[in-house]
């Protein structure tokens, strides 16, 4: 049974696209069939972060409007063959996405893949609502910072009211992904802690992704961090988050670099 997952946040720049790419790749690396869908029409970036920007021929809107078949628009990742991307359009405006068209494409994707991961645009407007409408599960990407937490709260409200699940009287399965977390600053009480954010938003924690230069390095070269730097702290956090999404019960820990280099070298595969 395919799962539709929306990666959303309300606020821009918190790491939705990075997290979509990293979680999508991590799930695909475990052998599951994954498609990542860019809903950010007009400001598409998922293709760029995943290094597929020069392979885009058709996009989501072409498929929604019936100008191209789904199979023509899907781009298979070159590094991981169970991973595909459905890019957004860069030029047309987001009114070109119709609810019926999106519903049809989502149904078709559900048949082809185990995971359909929708990268939501920022904001709470139509684009964001279309991205979340068909979701069974949601990953709410939040930075430990007041405006991000506030916007996440708004998005949680929308997930509980403006989705197909909500209309049917069911609940979208919501998970918090705390990104750009700095454990040292949180320990000095300069930054909202994991516990603070969890207490305020009261949804279950999917993972803690530390602030790391590996994330930028990966997007520079057009690869999800789980493919470009699989042993880095953020990649390990994403791998664990992906396992939790697949139903594994794993304790969430604050990611910190192990003391000695050799400790880390020998422990990483354990």
């Amino acid at each position: 049974m395919a799962k539709v997952l929306v990666v959303t946040s309300g606020k821009g720049g918190v790491g939705k696209t990075t997290s979509t790419a990293a979680l999508g790749a991590a799930l695909a690396q475990s052998g599951q069939n994954v498609v990542v869908v860019d809903f950010d029409v007009g400001l598409r970036n998922l293709d760029l972060v995943m290094g597929a920007e020069r392979r885009v021929v058709f996009d989501l809107i072409n498929v929604v409007q019936g100008d191209a078949r789904l199979s023509q628009a899907l781009i298979r990742d070159k590094r991981c063959e169970t991973l595909s991307i459905l890019p957004a359009s860069q030029t047309r405006d987001k009114d070109a996405l119709t609810s019926e068209g999106v519903a049809r494409v989502m149904d078709e994707l559900r048949e082809k893949f185990d995971w359909v991961i929708c990268d939501s645009p920022a904001g709470i407007e139509r684009g964001a609502q279309l991205a979340m409408y068909h979701a069974d599960m949601a990953v709410i990407v939040t930075n430990p910072e007041v405006s991000s937490v506030r916007d996440s709260d708004r998005i949680i409200g929308l997930l509980d009211s403006k989705t197909k699940k909500a209309e049917q009287g069911e609940k979208v399965d919501k998970h918090l992904l705390l990104t750009r977390y700095d454990p040292a600053r949180a320990a000095r009480k300069e930054m909202l802690s994991v516990e603070d954010v969890l207490e305020i938003l009261s949804i279950p924690l999917l993972g803690i992704v530390p602030e790391s230069e590996d994330v930028l390095k990966s997007s520079n070269v057009g690869a999800p961090v789980t493919l470009a730097a699989p042993t880095s702290l953020p990649a390990r956090a994403y791998f664990e988050a992906a396992r939790r999404l697949s139903g594994e019960k794993l304790e969430v820990s604050v990611p910190v670099e192990k003391r000695g280099f050799f400790d880390w070298l020998f422990k990483r595969d354990a």
Partner: peptide
């Protein structure tokens, strides 16, 4: 410094 994260938390909770 100790206060800034708890100030943030309190402000958020009220808002």
């Amino acid at each position: 410094r100790q206060q800034s994260s708890s100030v943030a938390k309190d402000r958020l909770q009220i808002l």
